[in-house]
Simulated scan of single mutants.
Amino acid sequence: MYKILFNLVFRKMDPEKAHHLAFFWIRLAASIPGLKQLVALVLAPRHRSLRTTALGLDLPGPFGLGAGFDKDGIGIDGLSMLGFDFVEIGTVTGEPQPGNPAPRLFRLVDDRALINRMGFNNQGSARVAARLAKRPHTTSTPVIGVNIGKTKVVEEADATADYLKSTERLAPYADYLVVNVSSPNTPGLRNLQAVQVLGPLLWDVRKAADAAVAHHVPLLVKIAPDLADEDIDEIADMALQLGLDGIIATNTTIGRDGLREPAARIEEIGMGGLSGAPLADRSLEVLQRLRARTEGRLTLISVGGIETAEDAWQRILHGADLVQGYSAFVYQGPFWMRRVHKGLAARLRASGHRTVAEAVGTAKPR
């Protein structure tokens, strides 16, 4: 049904407008008393066997929505209604910003991929923090990750102060916090991945989060797939030395290899980060390298090219404590999480492992 709707309606729309329309309907459904529970019952039946613990958090399952879909934390309940086990909002910057000029989001349908150069369009950390502060906290409240990045107009030399501003405002409302230094769409941002810059930045963010909140807020860093293997090793070592809680791997890629989309259209689209199916192999490689380097001492969240339950299961077997998706949600629609959870539960039963956590990292390295 969704595939027909996608081909007849969404595929003919500007991708960003289609996103806003779909997100509006998700939020609307979640705001209607009774309808939210009914939709969740149909789309998101929970499998008790998938319950897991990571980052010190109890989660209904291992599969969350990656950052970028809900930049301002306006649809958390609706996304949880669709079955995501946790929702990462953002990227949120210190100051509000409109992002890059449109068009800035493009579909590569034959590749099951997206290219975006959104540029961290968001309402800013003060407004997002105020919104999160109003959310009720109950036993059924979704787990929320908050992804923070650098405001575009802030100079690279002043990046730390900008991150600290967001940390102080948002850490009190985050179940975990992510420092994003890997988007290709903010000039100079990826320069912050150099360990001599990244280490002090993360250390300062850790101190700011501890000062802002009485309890420990898990801190992770999100890295790019385009890093050299040696740089990945250095970041892993640094994360262990700093006592970081985890790493999210990976963000979008600037690469364009192996695409089915005609080269002329790829050139016409221009700059931006590529996500979706073409990222799967490299994302898995980075995960395996991180797992081997850290030996289970960090929480690893794998994202990039995960489309099916089998994809998610392979990431878990190769060392991912948690997994995330985004691009496949665009192409597969609201029943996606239902299919993934059903498939994961079946694979867990067949594996002989009692829990997801028990299965993590049990595959032999390729």
Rank of each mutant, 00 (worst) to 15 (best):
M1W: 06
K3I: 05
I4H: 12
M13C: 10
A18M: 12
A18E: 06
H19R: 04
L28N: 09
A29R: 00
A30Y: 04
K36E: 15
L38C: 10
V39M: 14
L43Q: 06
R46S: 13
L50R: 10
L50S: 05
T52M: 13
D58W: 07
G61D: 10
F69S: 00
F69P: 00
D72N: 15
D77M: 08
M81A: 09
F84M: 09
F84H: 10
V87D: 03
T93M: 10
P103M: 05
R107T: 00
L108A: 07
R112I: 11
I115P: 02
N121K: 00
S125W: 10
A130R: 12
T141N: 11
I148M: 11
V153C: 09
V154I: 09
V154D: 10
E155V: 10
E155G: 14
E156K: 15
D162N: 14
D162C: 09
T167P: 01
E168Q: 14
L170Y: 08
N180S: 05
N185F: 04
T186K: 11
Q196A: 06
P200F: 14
D204H: 14
A209L: 13
D210F: 03
D210K: 14
A211P: 01
H216F: 07
P218R: 04
L220F: 02
I223G: 03
D229R: 11
L244E: 02
R256A: 01
L259H: 08
A263T: 14
A263K: 14
R265D: 03
I269L: 13
G272N: 05
G276A: 08
L287M: 10
Q288N: 04
Q288K: 09
R291M: 01
A292C: 02
G296M: 06
S302P: 04
E307Q: 12
R315M: 05
V323C: 11
V323N: 04
G325D: 07
A328D: 10
R338E: 03
A345N: 12
R349F: 05
A350I: 11
S351H: 09
G352W: 13
H353Y: 15
V356Y: 04
A359N: 01
A359R: 09
T362N: 06
